[in-house]
């Protein structure tokens, strides 16, 4: 599903040039659950952003579902992104002004799903995430665990092929964290590809494969059994 080859990304300030990704090559197959680990500043987040088409690489190739997207325009990337990729963030990134239901509904609005269909699908996914009873609440009224469930619900409501999770348990206690990881595992078992950046060895153990990055390069790959 994803194939990146010799990917490079630099950050330049006036005086310093930092290499975030250094000729990185990775492949992720459909249905995989991959964890990306590494110390702070190793380029994990940069990689995830490029994979999520939120950012573009300076050099190298990124083939998504057989399409070369490395030098797509912002508009084309956005279009590809909204139909194929769901995001889960460490800090949830829910919109405070919208209710649980409306937050989850948002991606469907942007992909032009008709209203009746939207209600059906949002309710379905809220039900699955067991937060149906909170549908009319605002994010601030929920616990961290519940907020992340909403965020995951929002990420999957569009039935994306790929979910990118950036430290999804980082702001949660261990019990809520485990719940979230169970949810992601369920989704993966139903066929969704998942790539997750994490600091937690515990969380990484839910994945099939761990890619360890250091200084923008892949140093080790652990295959989980």
């Amino acid at each position: 599903m994803i194939k990146i080859t010799n990917l490079e990304k630099f950050y330049r300030t006036e005086e310093v040039e930092t290499i975030a990704l250094n000729k990185l090559s990775i492949e992720v197959k459909t249905g995989e659950f991959v964890a990306i680990m590494g110390p702070s500043g190793c380029g994990k987040s940069t990689l995830l952003n490029i994979l999520g088409m939120l950012d573009d690489p300076d050099e190298g190739s990124y083939v998504f579902n057989g399409i070369e997207v490395a030098h797509f325009t912002e508009r084309k990337r956005a279009d590809l992104r909204k139909h194929n990729i769901g995001f889960v963030f460490q800090s949830f990134n829910l919109i405070d002004e919208l209710t649980v239901f409306e937050n989850v509904e948002l991606p469907l609005i942007y992909t032009g799903v008709p209203s009746a269909e939207r209600v059906k699908r949002v309710e379905e996914v809220l039900d699955k995430m067991q937060i149906m009873h909170r549908r009319n609440h605002y994010p601030q009224q929920l616990s961290g665990g519940q907020q992340q469930r909403v965020a995951i619900a929002r990420a999957v409501v569009n039935k994306p092929k790929l979910i990118l999770a950036d430290e999804p348990t980082g702001n949660l206690d261990s019990s809520n964290g485990n719940d979230v990881m169970e949810l992601l595992t369920d989704l993966n078992e139903q066929g969704t590809t998942i790539i997750m950046v994490t600091h937690s060895e515990h969380d990484a153990r839910y994945s099939h494969r761990i890619i360890r990055l250091l200084d923008g390069q892949s140093v080790v790959e652990n295959i989980m059994v």
Binding site: R81, K82, H83, F87, N93, L94, I95, Y110, T111, R154
Partner: peptide, 16 residues
């Protein structure tokens, strides 16, 4: 800004 970011990630076009 955060709201803008989230909406864009979720697929909002600039005109929206």
């Amino acid at each position: 800004a955060k709201e803008v970011g989230v909406r864009k990630v979720l697929g909002s076009a600039r005109k929206n």
